[in-house]
Design a protein around this nucleic acid. Sequence first.
DNA 1: ACTGTTACTCACCGATTGGTGACAGACCGG
DNA 2: CCGGTCTGTCACCAATCGGTGAGTAACAGT
Lengths: 219, 219
Amino acid sequence: MLNETAVAVLEQSSATEPEKRIRDRSATERAILKAAKNLLAEEGFQNFGINAVARRAGCDKQLIYRYYGGLDGLVEAIGTDLGNWVKDRIPEDAGGMFLLTYGDLMERLALLFLEALRDDPLMRRVVAWEVSENTEQVKRLSEARSKSLGQWLDRMRGSLTPPKGIDVAAVNALIFASIQHLVLAAAAGGQCAGLVLKNNKDWEKAAIALKRLVRGVYG
Amino acid sequence: MLNETAVAVLEQSSATEPEKRIRDRSATERAILKAAKNLLAEEGFQNFGINAVARRAGCDKQLIYRYYGGLDGLVEAIGTDLGNWVKDRIPEDAGGMFLLTYGDLMERLALLFLEALRDDPLMRRVVAWEVSENTEQVKRLSEARSKSLGQWLDRMRGSLTPPKGIDVAAVNALIFASIQHLVLAAAAGGQCAGLVLKNNKDWEKAAIALKRLVRGVYG
DNA sequence: ACTGTTACTCACCGATTGGTGACAGACCGG
DNA sequence: CCGGTCTGTCACCAATCGGTGAGTAACAGT
């Protein structure tokens, strides 16, 4: 990539010059991070490595070592980005709606989370990564993500009091676990436990079932 | 491994001769399959390759190509084994119990499935594999698994009629999805969505929450 | 214009990967 | 005894991996 532009410059520059991006460290850093995120989102964590990222970023892998301290640092940077995931991807104005009960809230949050996860391939890969490996890299990703998720839940809860006599943490963990696995399985194979999940109609059924599940516990 | 025994034999055989296993095709096939399953269960699908399997089986990788047609065939053999998973790992006598309602049944099945999955590292790796990759190998594994799971559900349902007005397939998919993700996340990082899952007490809480969830929809 | 720093590239390293062809020895039928 | 088949071993291949040291080109300060 970069070579082509450089060569083009040497050859007195042919017609188009697509973004030179020479000797601009911060721009290169951004390009690397972007390349890493796109690569992870599209290819998954299987082929996620120094060489592949450098190849996609169109720069030498040495720069990844220099600017991010290797793959670990790069993953950490991704994790930092991911800390703002809920803030970036999920509308916060749900508090302004008529959420009278804890059940109202959880139903809404569950549906929002389902949709957001369904629309974000990067986040899906990260979640899949979390349940597949246990390296230090992944641990950090996982922590950042669950922390930000927990804060989101707290923030949205506001002054609503959860029902007594129910282990809310455990029940909510199960609910969000079901959403995550459903979306992951669907993204991977188009179905989950025999339930086909491809077109919007399929997903509408799943959403209804999810509502029923939430309403079952929280009324 | 095998070299050591061979050398020992050439050296007029020292004291112990741990299972010679020479020139016995079916035994070698079994050893390879066993090695593959153990490797997958212990190391995960990340480092699951021809070389690693051959190394663990103590034979040349060429034999894997000859006897199984490469990794694909080997994975398929594992999948065939996995087709009997529910039969092997989950007691079938639950039908003889007092399961009066569909809710009784699903609660029992959910708990059985949770426990069985928790106790089987190989199956956990396979499930994690399913949501992480979409190769032909994994597809076959996934199909065999979900098919056998579906048959199990049908078999256990017996003459019990599911409640009307509920999309049982979708709800059950969500329930089993929650179990799978919970167990996977716990096995990977010891927690799921902030809920710590390490000792038996933690799991007891999760089981209670699971019951509540099932009872919520199915009464 | 000289100098030093910054941004970047390149060439190479050892290790490991999936895959293949050639070979050696045990066994069996003639 | 010989010849062929079966089982298993070994040596080698190109490709890729993560990682490093050395070198080059562009810029800034003086």
